[in-house]
């Protein structure tokens, strides 16, 4: 048994290292990922240990980076690319949506694309616009992509390895404000759940909170705070946004009769909208209240001085729980 106490950044770093040790076709590419080890230090030390060929510093050109990764994947490599900040994925949006997502389908499966696009996402670090965004719904909306988000160090370690092992292109979202926050015990002898599954991370009976990425921590804190009000809150870490793993969600909501979805992303047409629709379609008669959504405002992401107003916090989540019970 090997147990260590790690941050999300260390978990991802160790996961990347393990994947590179297991398969020499795995290579990393992105802006400043090599010599520097990435602006968030997720690839720290990997170029030193695996060499410049397998940890490649790329030009500052996101469309070029993703396109190059497509060509590598078509030729048998398993590229893992880092988009330095969430908003920088927009220059690469064309390649991801028009090329990455469609290669397997168009070619009748002759050209699978084992490609991982790592995106540090979300706010809370005092960065500027385009450095704090949550673009997940735009990719979850695109057939042919898979989209996952890790929320904690242990998932970071396992999920990145599972994403790299997947033969499909995976958009891999990392909550950047959690990179160096909480630590958790990683026991590598405990097998992880499959990648494309949601997990109940706190049991409860009265209401189901659905979250992913950075909002899982907020929702767990909200569930703890709700105890004093006599409410038993279940929290589900969705982990996979495309495909959605509705099984655990529907089972929970059928039991609790209430659901609240929380994400940093804009509320309008965010993941909460799809989850709300699916829950309503699948367990309408179990619901005691409409599915409620907590999200970022439908405005551009604010300047750093005001981001605390934008980001859903414990109070906004608990307000939504209260509204659910008020029905």
């Amino acid at each position: 048994m090997s147990t260590s106490r790690i941050t999300l950044a260390k978990g991802l770093n160790a996961g990347l290292r393990a994947a590179m040790e297991q398969d020499d076709k795995v290579m990393l590419m992105g802006e400043d990922v090599g010599r520097l080890g990435g602006v968030f230090r997720i690839t720290d030390g990997l170029q030193k240990d695996f060499g410049e060929r397998r940890v490649l510093d790329s030009p500052l050109a996101e469309s070029g980076i993703v396109g190059t990764a497509v060509g590598l994947a078509m030729r048998g490599y398993r590229p893992v690319i880092e988009i330095q900040f969430d908003g920088f994925v927009y220059p690469a949006y064309d390649q991801i949506v028009t090329q990455v997502a469609k290669m397997s389908y168009r070619s009748q499966g002759k050209v699978p694309l084992p490609l991982v696009i790592r995106i540090p996402f979300g706010g809370g670090i005092g960065a500027v616009e385009h450095h704090s965004e949550s673009p997940e719904a735009q990719f979850a909306h695109t057939p042919g992509l898979k989209v996952v988000a890790c929320s904690n160090p242990v998932d970071g370690y396992w999920m990145i390895q599972q994403a790299i092992a997947s033969d499909d292109p995976v958009i891999f979202l990392e909550p950047k404000r959690q990179y160096h926050a909480d630590k958790a015990d990683l026991d590598t002898s405990v097998a992880p759940p499959p990648l494309f599954t949601s997990q109940v991370v706190r049991r409860g009976d009265d209401v189901t909170l659905l979250a992913y990425g950075p909002m899982v921590r907020t929702c767990l804190a909200a569930a703890e705070a709700a105890v004093s009000e006599g409410r038993s809150v279940e929290v589900i870490d969705l982990r996979t946004l495309s495909p959605l793993d509705m099984g655990p969600v529907l089972a929970s909501v059928r039991r609790t009769g209430r659901a609240v979805v929380a994400h940093e992303a804009h509320r309008n047409l965010g993941m909460g909208s799809e989850l709300s629709a699916r829950i309503t379609e699948e367990c309408f008669y179990s619901l005691q209240a409409p599915v409620l959504r907590v999200g970022g405002f439908d405005t551009p992401y604010p300047a750093a001085r005001n981001e605390h107003h934008f980001l859903p916090d414990l109070d906004r989540v608990l307000d939504a729980v209260d509204r659910s019970f008020a029905f």
Binding site: S63, T68, V70, G71, M74, R75, Q95
Partner: peptide, 10 residues
């Protein structure tokens, strides 16, 4: 064009 770059890198 960028996809060809990746194939050449491979």
């Amino acid at each position: 064009a960028p996809i060809a770059v990746g194939a050449a890198l491979a």
